[in-house]
Write a protein that binds this DNA or RNA. Structure first.
Lengths: 321, 321
DNA sequence: TCCCCGCTCGGAAACGTTTCCACGTGCGCG
DNA sequence: CGCGCACGTGGAAACGTTTCCGAGCGGGGA
């Protein structure tokens, strides 16, 4: 692969001139410009970004660490963030932590070693260590969808209380008084926040406060199915269930349908299939792509030396069932 | 952020010694090892990977260009590939081309500028130019799920003919004689191959050869719905439809259900929701994660100077409906 | 006792850029 | 006619590594 020296030699100028021409520095003669461009084209020259970033301070790369690409919510978020970065002339490096702190740590180390310009991450449960060490190393960090205690970084989240409230009042209005919750793992902030918001609103509305109506799960499909079965085994069983993410909803839906029980399911995150099943699921929609885009804007602001504030996004109830 | 010089100064040794200790070179005294490790820990030193890769030939980063992260098939493939890379001690940089050649080209340029060790890509329609220029620049490339004319790179694909055959014989055995196809875009090789396999097998089995039973779509949800409506508008309408990917199947399913017609739908790619809808969909399962892993192994082999052959993977019929 | 060898280590070059500095050259103006 | 200035350019330093080369030093064998 050819270097700037090859181009300089072919064009008959110094490497300084090549660099100036290619970076659009006006201190170049039309003739040099012509010769250099010609030579670069002929050699198929692509500047070595790693050498550039060694000299320059910045790399133009933004690290994006996502809990699980296969979860459509995060895939959408990543996509939104990526589009925003692209529009700002930056390239994104997506890491898939797979809900595993060890893998996350590994990618964060890689980001750090690569000296990315900033990191956008939806942290894993386990520990806040990874994120904290990035912040302490002076790397701009924005947190996605989940907060992390003791880490000084802006966060973009959805309004958990609002979402839960929309779901519960909807179910209450439809006559339900005994509502179950399939909660995400308490190791992530969203999981914990949902549980407390659920308990608070349930009490405000005077609904059945039985603690066994709150079932913890791991956020995956199988966990959702298991939690749903535990709820169905209660006597009396809840007449409605709220599930905290799309993956768990799919497991819960199958379990409920398999049991033949008449239990109404409401899910966080809207997915195409939720409209297709019978009965269709009412959902608390969270615009993940928008969240990703907003977070990326915050990160870019942070990189440029700003001090952006955290953002809370609204949720929306889509009633179907 | 501290450099190797800072570590050397604090440990009271030369930078050469620091480098040797940290890279595990045995030509170091126990005392140096101790002092260097201590200093590095104290400073929170992380070697600058960009400087390393400038000196070394390799970067340890593999570029992964995917058609669309939000398509679960590709998300799974990316995940499989990533796991494999991780196991081989490499880090993956995921680019989401979004089924857009311009974005793909941009990412491929970035990969090239970053001097990644290799690129695994599922090419967009448009043109083969991006992939070809990588190959010509001497960068190891493996193609995922789609071939590209005139590009000298190994490919990992599913056995298109086998999949189509499984689907059609299944439908034939259930008594269907007039079967529609919702095909992916003909701009990608898989789209074209499916159409010709469909036509060939349909004729071999003596089924209705009407050309309007093959409807082209863009591979997205909306396109699938439109194509399904065109098929339903035929008279007589087909009694069964084969849809080429999960996104289009979801659109087609909704269109068919909305029309009230009794049309059996079979889809490529298995997704959770296909089991949940009523009636459940029979599918031609393609193990995307496995495809990703296989392709990554091929790429690693190519990077190490091998000459791997292209691989064709089997498909599997899961009969449900 | 002397030489040689092996072990550690420091110094320096090299990787491919960008940018500062200094040096012509040509022109306009006093 | 000569001086200064703008403009274009080449050379060199610097970014943070790795690795080669050579040197110092100690010990063991002849």
């Amino acid at each position: 692969m050819s270097t700037i020296h090859d181009v300089a030699r072919l064009a008959g100028v110094s490497i300084g001139t090549v660099s100036r021409v290619l970076s659009g520095n006006p201190a170049t003669s039309p003739e040099s410009r012509e010769r250099v461009r010609e030579a670069a084209l002929q050699l198929g020259y692509t500047p070595n970004a790693r050498a550039q970033s060694l000299r320059l301070a910045r790399t133009g790369v933004i690290g994006l660490s996502i809990s699980d690409v296969r979860n459509p919510f995060f895939a959408d978020a990543a996509h939104g963030a990526e589009q925003e970065a692209l529009a700002a002339g930056r390239v994104t490096m997506l890491a898939n932590a797979d809900e595993d702190s060890a893998i996350e740590a590994r990618y964060l180390r890689a980001f750090r070693a690569q000296r990315v310009d900033g990191v956008l991450m939806s942290p894993q449960g386990g520990s806040a260590e990874g994120a904290r060490s990035l912040v302490e190393a002076g790397i701009p960090v924005v947190l996605l969808n989940r907060t992390l205690d003791g880490v000084d970084a802006p966060v973009v989240t959805f309004d958990v209380r609002q979402g839960i409230e929309q779901a519960i009042t909807h179910l209450r209005d439809r006559g339900h008084r005994r509502i179950g919750l399939i909660a995400g793992p308490v190791s992530v902030s969203t999981g914990r926040a949902r549980v407390s918001a659920f308990e608070a609103i349930r009490d405000e509305l005077g609904l059945d406060p039985a603690p066994e109506l709150v079932q913890l799960a791991d956020g995956r499909r199988g966990g959702g199915a298991d939690a749903a079965e535990r709820l169905l085994a209660l006597s009396p069983a809840p007449t409605a269930v709220l599930s905290s993410n799309a993956l768990m909803s799919s497991g819960a839906f199958e379990a409920i349908r398999g049991s033949g029980a008449a239990v109404e399911l409401v899910s966080f995150d809207d997915q195409d299939w939720m409209r297709l099943v019978d009965p269709p699921l009412s959902v608390i929609e969270q615009d993940a792509a928008h969240m990703g885009a907003v977070a990326m804007r915050l990160l870019l602001e942070l990189i440029d030396g700003g001090h952006p504030r955290s953002v809370t996004l609204p949720t929306r109830l889509i009633a179907r069932g």
